[in-house]
Amino acid sequence: MKRLVPILATLAGLALLQWAATALLLDGPIRQGPYYYQILLLAGINVILAVSLNLTNGVAGQFSIGHAGFFAVGAYVAASVSVYGGPAIAGILPNIPLVRDSGILIAATSAGALAAAIAGWLVGMPSLRLRGDYLAIVTLGFGEIIRVLILNIDAVGGARGFTGIPRLANLFWVGLGVAASLAVVRNITRSSHGRALLAIRSDEIAAQAMGINVTRLKVTAFVVSAAFAGVAGSLFAHFAMFLHPNTFTFVKSFEIVIMIALGGLGSLAGAVLGAVTLTVLPELFRGFADYRMVIYALALILIMIYRPQGMLGAGGFLGRIVRMRWKKPVAKKGAETKSADNIGGPSA
């Protein structure tokens, strides 16, 4: 019962948020409302992507650059479910728009997440026995295979793009996805599994010597991360109403990697901040017209020069303030251990 309270509170909070957003942004007095609303949704979807990739790349210390592949699997499977199976699902649900739409979205998102998880397992099983550069190459290859596969499947539009997807995602559902990904990744990181993953990141051989089933844990983290990329994909499909293979190139994978690197590899708050920053910055720079992407890139370079560990990375900006203010009375020894197992540390 106690566990239900925060869940119910989150749901109620999100419903309230959705109501407020509809009243203020969509139908309300704010002129740019729908534009802000859209950026909010995009930021949310990017947060899910970044937080989930952070589990593999930041916490477990593996280097995956195929996240867009799982994103694509989730998006296309979920869109297929709602386009082709939508009427059937609607048929078994009571004919209330809210219930029907939610039912279809939940079914589609579950299917997308499941498909992405299976894809993650298939890719992870053989390739997570590899390390470093090799894993990067395998995941990069996987992302491209998925994209080329989609190009050749006519039922999902092929090179034409997938049209006619209903707009079912709203701030409530994206918010729920963000909350779920944050909760799951945070709980995994803080559990004994998370400690084991951190050990793997520090030294795989030592971790194995300590009795950690390295491959199994790495695959688990990889599958969870892929599943959430699938959730993000489903939400994206039902928000954009149109999917095209060009959205899911390796450039998208790199964008997600940049988000977590910018935020601070391994830091949950960093992943959120990185994703939001990377969604909002290009929009803020619209006023520069032609020079927009130049300035955007320049901003990234500057941040990386001054904060190579990311905005909230190891003993990051906020972390430092926290330590300066509250940790001062603690014995120096304590501070040292704190920094040693700080999950925000940059991987070697």
Partner: peptide, 11 residues
């Protein structure tokens, strides 16, 4: 990019 086109048009 398709998704950027959507954002640009919404704006």
């Amino acid at each position: 990019k398709p998704e950027e086109a959507l954002t640009a048009v919404t704006k």
